[in-house]
């Protein structure tokens, strides 16, 4: 699975990395998603955690992209 993190919508809530720390990384500097504006891979074993992280984002900033 691949997901895209919207560069503008991400506002630093940090929920994605709380629930799926193996998938989503926060910037050490400001705590926003370190990969915002990027499309990243989600390992199969992490898909359930990633889904909770995605669902927890108040901005709906993370979307699953078709491969």
């Amino acid at each position: 699975m691949k997901v895209h993190i919207d560069e503008i919508k991400c506002s630093g809530h940090g929920r994605c990395a709380k629930y799926a720390p193996e998938v989503f990384r926060l910037s050490d500097d400001d705590g926003y998603n370190a990969d915002r504006g990027q499309t990243i891979d989600v390992p199969a074993a992490e898909e359930k955690n990633a889904a909770i992280g995605i669902r927890s984002c108040p901005e709906r900033a993370i979307t699953v992209v078709a491969e």
Binding site: G12, G14, A17, S27, D28, D29, D30, G31
Partner: peptide, 10 residues
């Protein structure tokens, strides 16, 4: 941009 680092998770 200036204030966020003072209240980041880290």
């Amino acid at each position: 941009a200036k204030l966020n680092p003072h209240l980041s998770p880290k």
